[in-house]
Design a protein around this nucleic acid. Structure first.
Length: 484
RNA sequence: CGGGGAGUGGCGCAGCCCGGUUAGCGCGCCUGCCUUGGGAGCAGGAGGUCGUCGGUUCAAAUCCGAUCUCCCCGACCA
């Protein structure tokens, strides 16, 4: 039986080898495949459907909060990229360059965008003349190229898809407000749609986006105990407006530089979904994002095509009618048992089994992927029940992930404890930090632990402690973790 | 980019050290029969220039060199 199980699952259990489990499940579940170019992958239909759901649900929020979509060029002239020094230094090691058009060498190299601040800044300088033109609230859905040294499907690929928002405002306060509004929108999105609880806060100077005044991020704890940055929102200050000369005449007729923000989330979110929710049997997708929310498996016995199939088809169309993404697996060449495992591996949140026995009893058997709980539901109330169960799955997946996050968050005072917790239990560690980059750096060198975020102050939290490394008095409590 | 491992039908592997018939095995795939409430069975069949390029040799999956890609562990990042 054990041997059979291995053959059947075709993937290494997550608990045995997390890394291998991660890459194997991506290929076995047909989310993505390796392309013949270093660090590049093909997002296959089942994987792309997740991205489409993410895009749709996120785009709705972006628009509802007043932003419009636009599209900027893939190429950025070298001179533009060079204008913001920090920005250039941050990105130059990973920029891909276009040097030729056909056989002719270009007079000026073109960068394949690693992010679009530069090209957008340039355009904004033409568009913005008066305070009446502000704010500019633009988002773009695009692909990005970053020549990373080490790549992993979805988590870090040479090319990835994302949305990047770029806004311009009259004042620092407005830009800051936008930056934080987006951050909380990201948090809400990831928690309610992806069922992944996140911690949000500010990044340290060291982890800041190249060219930003301040960087904020949402971070989530993956089920192997490592942290993953899932979205970032930057207050760019006037760094880019000064170098791209984005000026406007303000209400007092004075010429001013605009205040900007930029923010993004990427296909990395799919990696986060895989790593936060999956188990030894494969993927588990939260219903809101799942490409297929319900799979119907007809139990093929006897003349099932006459008896069972029509009922299954009826259920399928009823569920479709109420907007459930449903798939009836009526393939003859596979047994029901085979299909059960297959769809479990592929993470479908709810399975409906319907066979002769069920039809006699006017019911179907539902099986939740997240808990494997079986429930017999009446065909008369099937639509409502399925919708209800999907909601419950969504909710309990978030709760489960949150429980995991809390259970794996430890508070430590001493560096010795910090090291042992990081080695044995992993997870997030809350500790005080004096604010000096030297301490941050040394902690990283010794433990591989980095400051993920400086959370926003909560009233009830202890106000002061001692820096984890140097022991100096501090009122900054931060989250450390080993990160992807 | 450093250190380690690996590329052989769709997937997982054996063969390589010690060069020599027609490159094997399991799963999957195709056809037929038979089955089907947790990955059924039998019979027949298809599918490979052994990652790529070059070298050594009468002869290369096997030896040598280069190169590409993947995986793991570090330095860098969404």
């Amino acid at each position: 039986m054990n041997k059979d199980e291995r053959l059947v699952k075709q993937i290494i259990p997550k608990s045995v080898d997390f890394s291998r489990w991660y890459t194997e499940i991506i290929r076995k579940a047909e989310l993505a495949d390796y392309a013949p170019i270093r660090g590049m992958m093909v997002i296959r239909p089942y994987g792309f459907a997740i991205w489409e759901n993410i895009s749709y649900l996120l785009d709705k929020r972006i628009k509802e909060s007043g932003h419009s979509n636009a599209y900027f060029p893939l190429f950025i002239p070298e001179s533009y990229l060079q204008k913001e020094t920090e920005h250039l230094e941050g990105f130059s090691p990973e920029v891909a360059w276009v040097t030729h058009g056909g056989k002719e060498e270009l007079e000026e190299k073109l960068a394949v965008r690693p992010t679009s601040e530069a090209i957008i800044g340039n355009m904004y300088s033409k568009w913005i003349k008066s305070w009446r033109d502000l704010p500019v609230l633009i988002n773009q859905w695009a692909n990005i190229i970053r020549w990373e040294k080490v790549t992993r499907p979805f988590l870090r690929t040479t090319e990835f898809l994302w949305q990047e928002g770029h806004t311009a405002h009259e004042t620092y306060e407005e830009a800051q407000e936008e930056t934080l509004m987006i951050l909380s929108m990201y948090k809400e999105f990831v928690e309610s749609e992806l069922a992944i609880p996140v911690i949000s806060g500010k990044k340290t100077e060291r982890e800041k986006f190249a060219g930003a005044l301040e960087t904020y991020a949402i971070e989530a704890l993956m089920s192997d105990g490592k942290s993953l940055q899932m979205g970032t929102s930057h207050n760019l200050g006037q760094h880019f407006s000064k170098v791209f000369n984005i000026r406007f005449e303000d209400r007092d007729q004075k010429l001013q530089y605009v205040w900007q923000s930029s923010w993004g989330m990427s296909t990395r979110l799919i990696g986060a979904l895989i790593m936060s929710h999956g188990d030894d049997s494969g993927l588990i997708f939260p219903p809101r994002i799942a490409p297929i929310q319900v799979v119907i498996i007809p139990i093929s016995v006897g003349n099932w095509k006459e008896n069972v199939l029509p009922v299954a088809q009826n259920i399928e169309s009823e569920l479709k009618y109420i907007g459930v993404r449903v798939n009836l697996d009526a393939r003859e060449e596979f047994t029901p048992g085979w299909k059960f495992s297959e769809w479990e591996m592929r993470g479908v949140p709810l399975r409906l089994e319907i066979g002769p026995r069920d039809i006699k009893g006017n019911h179907a058997v539902s099986v939740r992927r997240d808990t494997m709980d079986k429930e017999i539901i009446s065909l008369d109330s099937l639509k409502q029940d399925v919708a209800e169960i999907l909601k419950r799955i969504q909710k309990s997946m978030l709760e489960k992930a949150l429980r995991f996050q809390l259970e794996n968050t430890h508070e430590v005072q001493k560096f010795e404890d910090f090291k042992s917790v990081l080695d044995s239990k992993k997870g997030l560690i809350k500790a005080f930090w004096c604010g000096k980059q030297a301490c941050e750096e040394k902690i990283k060198d010794e433990t591989m632990g980095t400051i993920r975020v400086i959370p926003f102050k909560k009233d009830k939290e202890k106000a002061v402690g001692n820096c984890l490394f140097c022991g100096e008095k501090s009122d900054v409590l931060v989250y450390f973790a080993r990160a992807y």
